[in-house]
């Protein structure tokens, strides 16, 4: 073992007890997405308000604009990343059973990944109008 100063046994290390050392990265990513969400959510609010009485053709025309495509994809990635981190903390705080907790966190992240990819594909479908 490299670190002889620790009193943690190899078994304790293998069981993954103690700090995971992922907390700071988690918090930094959460704060960065908090800030990046502000302009992206502002754009979504503006879009929803301006598309209030839009027909489907107007809706697709708006979503086909290059700016709309880029910002919408950024919105999906940024918000889903933010809420994945947010919900992970909620699960870690309130679910004491480790097995259930890990299943919930992993399931939630897989769900968000699938949802995000499906949304991005849908954004691209509107943008390029492929008759799938």
């Amino acid at each position: 073992m490299k670190n002889n100063n620790t009193i943690q046994s190899p078994l304790g290390k293998a069981k993954g007890l103690g700090s995971s050392h992922h907390g700071t990265g988690h918090k930094i990513a959460h704060n960065i997405t908090t800030l990046t969400n502000i302009p992206l959510v502002a754009w979504v609010i503006y879009s929803v308000c301006s598309l209030r009485d839009a027909t489907y053709e107007e809706f697709t025309t708006y979503m086909s604009h290059p700016v709309s495509i880029v910002v919408a994809i950024l919105f999906v990635v940024s918000t889903l990343k933010h809420f994945a981190l947010e919900l992970q903390v909620v699960y870690e705080d309130y679910i004491s059973c480790k097995c259930l907790r890990m299943m919930k966190i992993i399931g939630m992240k897989i769900l968000f990944l699938v949802l995000g990819l499906a949304t991005i594909v849908s954004i691209l479908k509107i943008a390029f109008g492929a008759g799938v």
Binding site: L80, F83, L87, L115, A118, T119, I123, I126
Partner: peptide, 25 residues
């Protein structure tokens, strides 16, 4: 935050459904 996460998921599902089934719009 939990409410917004759920409503974001609902909104994205609505968006996907509308794109693949335009009459829903």
């Amino acid at each position: 935050g939990i409410g917004l996460a759920l409503s974001l998921m609902a909104a994205l599902v609505w968006f996907i459904a509308v794109v693949w089934n335009p009459p829903l719009y």
